[in-house]
Design a protein around this nucleic acid. Structure first.
Lengths: 347, 347
DNA sequence: AAATTTTGCGTGTACGTACACGCAAATAAA
DNA sequence: TTTATTTGCGTGTACGTACACGCAAAATTT
């Protein structure tokens, strides 16, 4: 049951381990005849390199860069992927893998460009990117492609780039799922209100798709009530309260908020909530506060921590273990209610 | 940023690496003076052994045994933890860790005893146990304790044993959570039916606790309708259909089935389901069938795959990496509906 | 005091791989 | 043909650790 080593291969092929090594690494200086023979024996004996010995022998240390929004106090969503990244970094520290984190301001595209340069300067072996600014991210991707540095996306992906792997959400599907949850609560008719908290909905593809998902569900299930969609500027919270006050009435049974649920929850608290199923997104502390208060009923999220963790692991598997990695991973959509949010708060 | 090795320690302490090695492994043959000095320097330089080199140098291969019910066609729940176990085994294969799986028949306590002997014969370095039979599992645990072989429990734990770690469910909490979901659908009054599918409820602690959890929720939320609890022998499916037919009426809005949801679903399909929120447990293929048909609305599960995976990892972290492992882990309760079950089917 | 044991330490080899070096034979250039 | 270059291969050392062995000095026994 022992694993075969290059030594075993060498013996069987009647060559030295050096030769085997050269064959495996394609470093030339081997006759075609020997090459074939060694490769055949490798396959036959089902040789798999010992990653431990590889990493030990190689003096090369791998450096992975991560590029995500800087987590702020008022928006700590981005802390979670970072936790996953750190966990992976810890697991891999024994393999001489170092993870270096770079940040940008998610409201400042210039900061993305600036910091991109620093990443390129570092010449890392692989990069993990949360590409909130798709245009700028595409530029970075192009550079990385030209340097032959593999990169993975988390959260969302920039099409038309040669990314190694993607771990993120499926916005449409999560909206569709939200439909199911609201459906649990809906009487035959009733009303559902969608709130998009955004100044520029067209640019926030995620939000748009979440809404589309919900609408699709309602259509597929022949919803006979009314479906109202509001789009509100994030800066105008007063407007929000006012609008909600106007629109909300006793027939309203579902509230679907595609982002910043806590802000809507705050307004809703003032108005008073009754018999409305409130579905929002992401386990931020702010949101959790209102989940606990019973204003928000459900939060959906797609394993932000795992996105960070798996993203780093994908780089590791590709670069160090030389394994194939799947390209697209839509993360499981998690349904979080007051009674199980603790499960996700630290894991 | 390079890591310190015993060589660095040796140099700084003016001794040979052999001496450092002896100090670290407490193999004696070192003067107290030198010992202290070396230890001080280890702490000072923050020495951490290189696990790769350790595993490479040591000829010892670790063997972990797993002991779970044999997955059958009609109950493949136990395939999932096995998948997690296999995944962990793959990840650790580079570390010379071998995982050997033993099985018992979950309806035959004798098979548990029998196979226990085989495990003890193997003298593994660590054991992972899914202790469906608590009494027999306790016997095994006692033996392992006397041999100083660490063991972890998954799914449920046997109190009063010195287990290394536990990864499992919190039945009460999941029942409580089920209450929340049913609550989404409930009109002020209405009726909720609990079905326990068991011949011996007292012995199935999980099921009992799930029911308790639901009842607690309803009590805490001042439920004013009726709460009916049925306990049905698994063998008597005809009785089941009949009983359901009798009990179910238009006021029934919630159905909570603590195990084998698919059997209840089958009966319910005959009767016809209308306006009832059906909550069951576990993502078995049978259950998923009825989830897709819309008979079952929600399935709860607690990451059975992760339980296997993390269980093995706990053994690894304890025995190989010599890290501290947390003792009790209640796994996140996952809420699975038709729209996200695929996320969990292969992951 | 001599012989024996114990203590305290260094040395050497192994694990499986990477990679630099070196050397003979084959080939090419003079 | 002689010399230079390339090809094809083996050898040796390093990575960081574990562990067996060996040897001098100290401690103990005779």
């Amino acid at each position: 049951m022992k694993k075969v080593s290059i030594k075993d291969i060498a013996e069987k092929a009647n060559v030295s381990i050096g030769t085997v090594d050269r064959v495996i690494h394609n470093r030339g200086r081997v006759s075609e005849r020997t090459r074939e023979k060694v490769l055949a024996i490798c396959r036959e004996m089902d040789y798999e390199p010992n990653v431990l010995a590889q990493r030990l022998a190689s003096d090369k240390a791998f450096v992975f860069a991560t590029f995500t929004p800087k987590p702020k106090r008022d928006n700590s969503y981005w802390k979670t992927p970072l936790d996953g990244i750190r966990k992976a970094a810890d697991e891999l520290s024994g393999y001489r893998v170092r993870v270096k984190s770079y940040f940008y301001d998610q409201e400042n595209e210039e900061s993305f460009r600036q910091e991109s340069l620093n990443i390129l300067l570092e010449k890392p072996d692989g990069v993990l990117i949360a590409p909130l600014f798709h245009r700028e991210a595409r530029d970075l991707a192009r550079k990385l492609e030209s340097y032959d540095i593999p990169f993975v996306f988390i959260d969302s992906k920039v099409e038309d780039t040669r990314y190694l792997s993607y771990f993120g959400q499926d916005s449409f599907r999560s909206g569709y799922l939200a439909g199911r949850l609201i459906w649990f609560h809906l009487k035959k008719k009733g009303e559902v209100i969608i709130v998009n908290f955004s100044s520029d909905l067209e640019n926030h593809v995620h939000l748009k798709n979440r809404e589309k998902g919900l609408k699709q569900f309602m259509e597929n299930h022949h919803f006979r009530g009314t479906l109202t969609s509001l789009t509100i500027d994030p800066k105008e919270e007063l407007v929000l309260t006012h609008t909600l006050y106007e629109r909300l009435h006793h027939k309203t049974q579902g509230l679907f908020v595609t982002s910043s649920a806590h802000k809507v929850a705050r307004s809703l608290q003032k108005i008073g909530k009754d018999n409305v199923l409130f579905v929002g997104y992401d386990l931020t502390p702010d949101n959790v506060t209102y989940l606990n208060k019973g204003i928000i009923d459900v939060l959906l999220c797609q394993k932000p921590m795992a996105q960070g963790h798996e993203g780093i692991m994908a780089l590791f598997n590709h670069l160090v273990r030389k394994r194939k990695v799947e390209k697209n991973h839509s993360m499981p959509i998690e349904i979080v209610v007051k009674e199980n949010y603790q499960d996700y708060s630290d894991f």
